[in-house]
Simulated scan of single mutants.
Amino acid sequence: MCGTESRKELPLVSAASGCSCCSKEAAKEVTVAGDAEYALEGLTCGHCVQTVEKAVTAVAGVDAASVVLVPGGRSRLVISGAVAEAELRDAVVSAGYSLATR
């Protein structure tokens, strides 16, 4: 590409744990600070929205949570605060729904 190519070498990890950017080790300690958005699956009505919002706001570190409902599609969860993604996922799953894979 125009004779100037720059590449950054990334560390290699074993195939058993995945690539270095999404290996299980890297995903364990993800903490969200500030506003963050997630995709939700399985929501169909306003009651679903209230259930997820209530479950997520109960997680320590979450200041606020709101859901934008898309019936039959991927709804959006917007949170503010500082929370580990695993705790957020657990709250959504315990409410009967799931965070969509990225």
Score class of each variant (00 low, 15 high):
G46N: 14
Q50Y: 05
Y38A: 14
T101C: 04
L40Y: 06
D35I: 07
T44K: 14
C45D: 15
C48S: 09
G81M: 09
G42F: 04
I79L: 14
L69F: 05
Y97Q: 09
G42K: 07
A65E: 04
V93Q: 13
K28M: 12
K28T: 07
V70L: 11
V93E: 15
V30Q: 13
V59F: 02
D63M: 07
L77F: 07
L69W: 06
G96T: 12
S75Y: 06
Q50L: 01
V70Y: 11
E53D: 10
S75L: 03
K28V: 12
R74A: 14
T31N: 04
S98Q: 14
G96W: 12
E25M: 11
A84E: 13
K24V: 00
D90W: 00
A100M: 05
G46V: 07
V92P: 02
G42W: 06
C21N: 11
A60F: 04
D90C: 00
K24M: 09
S23Y: 05
I79S: 08
A26K: 13
V70R: 12
R76Q: 14
A84Y: 03
V68K: 15
V59C: 02
V59Y: 02
V83S: 05
A36V: 01
V52T: 06
V83G: 04
A58G: 14
L40I: 10
A55E: 03
G34I: 06
A33L: 10
L99W: 05
V68E: 15
G61W: 07
A65L: 02
V83I: 07
A60M: 05
T51W: 06
L40P: 01
C21G: 08
V67G: 03
S66I: 03
T101A: 15
E87R: 10
A55C: 05
C22E: 10
G34Y: 02
